[in-house]
Every structure is written in C-alpha cells, then in structure tokens.
Computed example of a mutant assay.
Amino acid sequence: MPRSRRTLGSRAASVAASSLVVVLLAGCGGAPEQAVPDTAPAGPTVRNCDVDVPVERPGRVVAMFHNAVEAVLALGAGDRLVGAAYLDNPLLPELAGGFHPEQDRPIYWPEEYPSREEVLRVAPDLVVSGFTGAFTREGLGTRADLAGTGMDSFLFSSYCPSADGGGQTELGAVDVSLAGVERDLTDLGRLLGAEDRAAAITGRMRSTLDDVARRLDGVTERPRVAMLNSPGQTGELRVFGSGDIATTIIEAAGGTQAFPEIDGRQRTVSTEGIVAARPDVIVVPACCGVDKGPESAAPLVERLRADPALATVPAVRDGRVYTTTFAEVSPGIRNADAVAALAGRLHPERVSGR
C-alpha cells in the first residue's frame, strides 16, 4: 500500500528537495531554519523512544549502522534500501546478496556520517538507526528535524536518548533486554509491512534463547566476562559495561559482567583496571568495516596475551581470550546466536554441539 502522505508522486522526495534548498541557503546565511510541523500522525503509529512513528509502508529506506542495515535486509526490504552507512563487519551470507553498493543499490557511506544533504538527495521515507548518534545535530539532525523534511525515523530502543537529539552519552530510559530487541524487530517489521518476516525472525531468536536457558538451568558458577576493544589508532582499551546489550548477552550466556561499575558502551579502561577486575574470560569484538570478520580482532588478542602486566589475569593466564564481531554485540538479529556462541565458550560441558 502506498504511503498516505504521498500525492503526485513522493511527498518525501518533494519535501526533501525543497528542504535541501533551505539547508543549502541556510549554510550561506540566506534562509532561516525550517519550522518543524507540530501535527500528530492521523493513523496507526508505533511508539519508539517517545516518538510516534506512522505505520505507513515506506518506499525508500536509509539504514544507519550495521544492526539497522541487517534488520532492514532480513525483513525483506532490501529492494527499498536506498542508502546505508557504517557496516562493522561482513553482512551475514544470507543477506549479502541483497546489498550491491558497487551499483549504488544502496548508496553506501562506509566511514563517515553522510551529510544531511546527501540523505535528503536520496529522499527516504524512513531512516532506521541502530544508535542514537545518527539523530543528533552532528549527525543527520534530530528526529523532529527529519520529520520536518518528510522523513519518519526509527531507533533501536537500547539507545533511546533522554531527549530528541541526544547522543550516546545522553541516554534516557533504554531497554537493553533481549525481549526489547525482539520488540524492536517486531515494530520495525510492522513499519516495513513485514510482520510475518519479523515474527519468523523473533521466533527463531526466542527458540535459540530458550534452548540455551534450558541447557544452563542450574548453573551456579558464572565466569566473569570482560568485552574489550581498542578502536582507532590510539591503543586505548575500552570496555562494554553495564546498561548495554553486551552485558545482557553475557548474562544470558551464563556469565557475569566483569565491570559492573562501568556504565555504558566502549568506556575507557586502564590495564590496571583489567587486572583489578580479574575477568575469567575476555571477548574482543572485531570492528569496523565490511571486511572485518572476527579474525580482525586477533592483533588485540595477541597484544593482551603478550602484555606482562596482564599475565596474572585469569582469562589471559588460562587462554580464555576469544574473538567475536561488533555486530554480534549490537542490538539486532544476531543477538540470540551470540548468546549461544558465548554460552558454548563459558559452559562447553552444557552447550557445546547445540
């Protein structure tokens, strides 16, 4: 069904075209900032991070960040994906066939946020983001800004900001549960007109999680797990702390967070901090690029193993430093399999061979 806001073609495209002129003129001091409409959607909506998103099947979609791109593809909307940004790792093999950036299907921005003007040019009806950084003034603009140009938006609820336009350090009432991820996929499926696909995806996820929970029933020893990476060229170590989907995955896999006092994702941690935390297991998520599989984390694994300051840390001493991918530990379609894989490493006597 076409979107109700379209008349004489795509309203999103026409509003985006006029908005592009406004944006470009404003950059030269030639026009004031466009006012944002204050009208509520007339039809059914999905409530998403305190924003009511109209349930109107979009014809053109932009997805920001790996988890959003994979969700859109998995929900069968690859033919409507006109723009994508930031793949952290290779796409799942079953999804890669629907992604052709070499043919601009979709247009792909690999390393930096596209400018607001670039996104306006592809005239999406819906912008889906896996992280709130896309919906800031430094990114594409706030969700209200995008609504003013005819674009709806959807954000994974693990990263709801405290107010529209807030970044990753300004999170509000987030939901980092696996049930929350399933709800997000259900809601996104409804927005994309793909309810049956969403139900199939979440059903498989729930079956995997229930199987792992059954196998771990009665486990009393829960290893302390640290998820660490070292983005960029600085060499600093960062931890995936509490209040993040990574901790949810650790706990569902039969572990405990080694850094419960550190809140949030990718917080800087010192070597001394790792020694004090004494993790039994260290997991290193590989990032960032379409060619960065789990083996890309091997250099950091070797660095941790070779650091004499970490020699007494149980994970290093006992050879329990493993790799995964950033995509596994971001909210999305891979989370249930990530739980199963980690459970197999933490409790191989119960979960191996599932």
Rank of each mutant, 00 (worst) to 15 (best):
A336C: 14
N48V: 07
A340I: 13
G9P: 08
P231D: 12
H66N: 06
E349I: 01
S153R: 04
G235P: 09
R204N: 10
G264C: 08
G293N: 15
V212C: 04
R121V: 01
C160K: 02
D79E: 01
L91E: 12
A198V: 01
D280P: 01
N67D: 12
L185E: 03
D217V: 05
A246L: 12
A298R: 08
P331I: 13
F259L: 01
A179P: 07
T248Y: 10
V122A: 01
Y113V: 07
V290L: 14
A96D: 09
D50A: 12
I201P: 01
L95N: 09
D52T: 01
Y159K: 11
V122Y: 04
G97L: 03
N229E: 14
D164P: 01
A77W: 05
S158D: 11
E117D: 02
N335P: 12
M205N: 07
A246C: 14
L191G: 05
S162A: 15
A17C: 07
A343Y: 08
V281K: 08
A173E: 14
E33N: 13
A17R: 06
T323F: 11
S14F: 05
L304W: 05
Y322S: 08
D79M: 00
K292A: 14
H66C: 08
A252G: 10
E33M: 14
S296Q: 09
G264A: 08
P285H: 14
P2M: 00
V239N: 11
A338V: 13
T45W: 06
A96Y: 10
V269G: 12
G97C: 06
T136Y: 01
S352T: 10
R334P: 13
D104Y: 04
S162Y: 13
R121N: 00
P223Y: 02
D145I: 09
Y86H: 13
E56P: 01
A258H: 08
G353Y: 05
P348W: 03
G319S: 03
R57C: 07
V329L: 15
R303L: 07
E195Y: 04
G76F: 04
G27I: 05
P101I: 05
I282A: 00
G83K: 04
G148M: 04
D318A: 04
E236P: 13
S157Y: 07
A200S: 02
A71K: 07
D210V: 03
L342S: 10
G9D: 08
D145V: 11
T268R: 15
D196L: 06
D164F: 10
L209A: 07
D307S: 05
A71E: 04
E295D: 12
G235L: 11
A144L: 14
T247W: 07
R350T: 02
A341W: 15
V128P: 02
P32Q: 07
D164M: 10
G172K: 13
E236K: 15
V290M: 13
A71S: 00
V176L: 14
D187E: 03
F156I: 08
E138Q: 14
D318R: 00
E236A: 15
T208D: 15
L91G: 12
A253M: 03
